[in-house]
Amino acid sequence: MSEYILELKDVNFKYENAPTVEEPALKNINLKVKKGEFIGVIGSNNSGKSTLCALCNGLIPKALDGEFSGQVLVDGQDIKDVSTAKMSQKVGLVLPDPEAQLSQLTVYDELTFGPSNLELPREKIFEEADRVMKLIRLENFKERSPFSLSGGEQQRVAIASVLAMNPEILVLDEPTSNLDPLSTQEIFEIICKLNREMNMTVILVEHEVELMAQYVDRFVVMDNGRIVLDGSPKEVFSHREVFEQIKMFIPTVTSLAGEIDEEYRKWGNYEYPITLEEMIKIIDSRKE
């Protein structure tokens, strides 16, 4: 098997019914993901993040029509050779629209739906559903209809229902857009824990750059259908000019360090900080 669990090679994709006729949604995408990596994908609206997510489990090119070229390998297997339903054992995809992802009569049925489609044994499914229910704290909603929940609660159910399938790669497309800051952080913690403890590969699309910087191993920055930056948070945020060009913000502390660059250099040979804690540490160490 190849050393990468997910590999995108020279992928181009253009939606059939795209509003802007000439522009493909993805251009020349090359991405290699190792097992156990936690990748954050950021980029402005329409930069192709969701399209990238749909590639990972084969929705593109199978369910969404368009011109596709290149190759996507999951665990060395071309996604074109496997049905999306089969692929769901390997790649779990959480879509941004929570309500459209729900289909069952109760939250608990929602959790058992995916695994039962994989024909796993009953006991295992119950075990898994109970575990996920605890993890995402859905116990109180167990018997409720998912459609009677608030947007944020629905989003948690959507995440849980994918987690219940225990995929090797977890792809989340803006999974916290309806959540309050505290729940967002909680979901991030849970995803991070799954990544660290169970070695789950995670690809997370979000706009909360600052929060993501605390968790992810690697950032992929997209603009206009291309990957413009790819590397560790430190590496990525050192390219301030690129972020300026694509009109995206970098974490405030990094930006601050950049603004006072001359002064900052005098403090010592520090890298630019990316989280508030790091900055505080640097300042503290200067006091001593």
Binding site: N57, L59, A63, S83, T84, A85, K86, S88, Q89, G92, L93, L95, Q101, F113, G114, P115, N117, L118, E119, S161, V162, M165
Partner: peptide, 8 residues
């Protein structure tokens, strides 16, 4: 489909 519907 993402949750395996149609697999069986």
């Amino acid at each position: 489909e993402c949750r395996g519907f149609g697999n069986t």
